[in-house]
Computed example of a mutant assay.
Amino acid sequence: MQLCDDTGEKVPTGWTVTGASFEVEWPKDPQSASLVWSHFGARRFAYNWALAKVKSDMDAKRTDVSYPSTPWTLEALPKRWNQEKNEVAPWWGDNSKEAYASGIADLVRALSNWSSSKHGRRKGRKVGFPKFKSKRKDRNRVRFTTGTMGFEDDHRTIVLPMIGALRSMENTRRIQRHLAKNNARVASNLFLTH
């Protein structure tokens, strides 16, 4: 387990903990592993769906400047997703809503980086317009910010929404002590795979 401050440095005892990272074992149960893969795919699907909407809106705006396009925000794109999800992804309920929100948030960030780069407000190398994500090249990940997240009493199990319990390769006791004393709270989990 690694406890770090907002600069990434290890936190000495007594300091405020702002982040903790745990490596988890890949689920041995095929059904659990399939559920994790499904969440990764749901994030990628939502990203690609939102990017298709943005491109479609941009094309429509070129031919008709009065076309009412959806703003590239964390409020507008998820709202449009919620209006269309039953039609475009009737299986959406098989995964946590956080998987879809995570994909849309990734696209909003990518669009913001592109726009800032294009207008000279972003330092560093130029950032291109976002591209569609493929299963083969996309880095599998999903972020959970709501739902049942926590740790089990064995100090080795992390619980994520819809996915359930995953075994940590590190002991979670230190962070659980902070949680028990109300010195910390679980605000966001990011689950990654290589």
Rank of each mutant, 00 (worst) to 15 (best):
A99S: 14
S102D: 13
K10V: 03
P90K: 04
P71H: 11
S116K: 14
Q31A: 11
S38E: 11
R80N: 03
S116F: 08
H39P: 00
P71A: 15
T70A: 13
P90M: 05
K85C: 04
P30R: 13
D64M: 05
G19Q: 06
D57V: 12
E87L: 08
N82G: 01
P27C: 03
A110G: 05
D57H: 13
D106N: 11
S21A: 12
K61M: 11
F45Q: 02
W92D: 01
W91Y: 09
E25I: 01
S96G: 09
D6W: 09
N82T: 10
K55N: 15
L3G: 03
G41S: 13
L107F: 06
F40I: 04
Q2W: 07
E9H: 10
G19R: 01
D6C: 09
D6E: 08
S69R: 15
S116G: 14
W49N: 12
S115N: 10
G124N: 08
Y67P: 07
K10R: 15
V88A: 07
V24G: 06
D6L: 12
H119R: 13
E98F: 05
S115L: 12
R62G: 06
S116I: 00
V11I: 15
W26L: 04
W26V: 06
K123V: 03
P27L: 05
S115Q: 10
T73F: 14
V24R: 00
E25V: 05
A101V: 00
D5N: 15
G41L: 02
L111F: 07
V54I: 15
V24F: 15
T7H: 07
S112N: 12
A101G: 14
W15F: 12
W15Q: 12
T63K: 12
D29A: 06
G103W: 01
Y67W: 15
G93K: 12
L107E: 05
V108M: 07
W37K: 03
W92T: 00
D94E: 06
N86K: 10
S21M: 10
W72Y: 14
Y47N: 06
A42L: 06
D57C: 13
S102R: 01
K55S: 12
L77G: 10
T7A: 07
D64C: 09
E25M: 09
L74Y: 03
S66M: 11
A89D: 03
P12W: 13
K79F: 04
F22E: 01
C4W: 02
D64F: 02
V65S: 14
K61N: 06
V36M: 05
W49E: 14
R43L: 09
V65E: 14
K10P: 15
I104N: 03
H119N: 15
G120V: 11
G93R: 12
W91N: 07
T63C: 02
L77W: 07
S112W: 07
S38L: 12
D29E: 09
W49C: 11
P27W: 09
L107D: 04
N86G: 09
F45N: 00
P12M: 07
R80E: 11
D6Q: 07
W26C: 01
